[in-house]
Simulated scan of single mutants.
Amino acid sequence: MYQIEEPTYFLYLAIIPVIFVLFFLVLWWKKRTQKQFTDYNLIQKLSPSSSTFKSILKITMVSLALGFLIISLTNPKMGTKLETVKRQGVDIVFALDVSKSMLAEDIAPSRLDKAKQIITKIIDNLGGDRVGIIIYAGNSYPLLPITTDHAAAKMFLQNANPDMVSSQGTAINEAIEKAITYYDNEAQTNRFLFIVSDGEDHEENTITLAQEAQKEGIKIYTIGVGSSEGGPIPMKNIGGGISYKKDSKGEVVITKMNEQVLKDIAYEGKGKYINGNKTQETINHIKDILAKAEKNEFESKQFSDYKDQFQWFIGFGILFLIIDVLLLEKKTKWIQKLNLFNQTDPLNNSK
């Protein structure tokens, strides 16, 4: 398992293609200038040992050396063994609504983007807690199993979109059912389910499922995103333009947040409904909830004993620099003596 300590240094790798571009521009300029004063055959007679290939090889060596030295600056590390460590925390599952109505922009930048912002900031404030993510629309889909890898959770979260779920709707029922199976029954941790949704197009029996989840020790908190005034649902056209979803009568559909259903789910789940339209207030509220929760000890596996590996890249960088120094821009004499292509010496060429 690898870690990169300073990934920002990778940006300096952009210097390498710039070096190549400048090198070939200078090479082109030299050839063009030479042609203005004399012809190719005379140049070959005046400098028979000149080698364009050697010049390209040398700039390649320099570029490789530079590349390895830049990578060494990022200080790559490798975990040498997998250890079981004890942590204290709670288990949190996020059920994210990715139905088409979440694309509405009545809350900037959109309901879905607002939901992702909230979940990302909650994850940023977690300690040793474990996190899982479920996405749902017409059906539910396990996006990330419960894990202590918060970086992976945020990465998977950013890729969540309506196209990942095969059918549309708002299958809160399926999301709750799947969430119940997410938790480790052997680890007696406090369990939280955060449903982030606009509450529209909910199904029947949702309240019953919320009660069942509560019996399993899962507290359900609902976070509403959207406005009561609502907004149209943007749809991408084949040509790349934007239109808005219309009903069978050809009128633009206006989607509105349904706070009441989210409040009912939270009430039956022994949790609380939180209006998520004000991001920072929502984060502070959830931080307070989790801070007051009893932390339980559980075991998790992770790589440990990370060792610096930068010295290998420095070594390769120095090696390529040495090769560059030893390489001459002239043609190699022993290769010339082989005369692989049956060429005649331009200085001894007789008529």
Rank of each mutant, 00 (worst) to 15 (best):
1 M>N: 14
2 Y>L: 14
4 I>R: 04
5 E>W: 01
6 E>T: 11
7 P>V: 10
8 T>Q: 11
15 I>K: 09
18 V>G: 09
19 I>L: 08
20 F>T: 07
29 W>Q: 12
31 K>L: 11
35 K>V: 02
38 T>C: 09
38 T>E: 12
44 Q>Y: 03
47 S>W: 00
57 L>M: 13
63 S>Y: 01
65 A>L: 04
70 I>W: 07
70 I>L: 09
72 S>A: 15
74 T>W: 02
75 N>Y: 07
75 N>T: 13
81 K>W: 04
84 T>S: 15
90 V>H: 01
91 D>W: 03
91 D>N: 13
91 D>M: 09
93 V>D: 09
95 A>D: 00
97 D>A: 06
99 S>I: 00
104 A>T: 11
112 L>C: 03
114 K>R: 15
127 G>F: 08
129 D>Y: 12
138 G>K: 04
142 P>W: 06
148 T>N: 13
149 D>L: 06
160 A>Q: 03
164 M>K: 04
165 V>K: 02
168 Q>E: 11
171 A>W: 02
172 I>H: 02
174 E>P: 04
179 A>N: 04
180 I>V: 14
186 E>A: 15
186 E>N: 15
189 T>P: 08
189 T>Y: 00
199 G>S: 05
204 E>H: 03
205 N>W: 01
207 I>V: 12
207 I>H: 01
209 L>Q: 05
210 A>W: 02
212 E>L: 12
213 A>C: 07
214 Q>E: 14
215 K>I: 08
218 I>T: 10
219 K>P: 06
221 Y>M: 10
224 G>R: 05
225 V>E: 07
228 S>R: 09
231 G>K: 03
238 I>S: 14
242 I>P: 08
244 Y>V: 03
251 E>L: 09
252 V>L: 08
253 V>C: 07
255 T>I: 07
256 K>F: 00
256 K>P: 04
257 M>W: 05
257 M>N: 08
258 N>Q: 14
258 N>E: 12
258 N>D: 15
260 Q>N: 12
261 V>G: 05
263 K>Y: 09
268 E>M: 13
275 N>P: 07
278 K>D: 12
279 T>Y: 00
280 Q>P: 05
280 Q>R: 05
281 E>A: 13
284 N>F: 05
284 N>V: 04
288 D>P: 01
289 I>G: 07
289 I>M: 07
290 L>C: 04
294 E>D: 13
297 E>K: 12
300 S>V: 08
302 Q>W: 01
303 F>H: 12
305 D>I: 00
306 Y>K: 06
307 K>W: 02
314 I>S: 02
324 D>C: 03
324 D>F: 01
325 V>G: 07
325 V>K: 13
326 L>K: 05
334 W>F: 14
336 Q>W: 04
336 Q>G: 12
337 K>N: 13
339 N>Y: 04
339 N>E: 09
342 N>R: 14
342 N>A: 14
349 N>G: 01
350 S>W: 04
351 K>P: 06
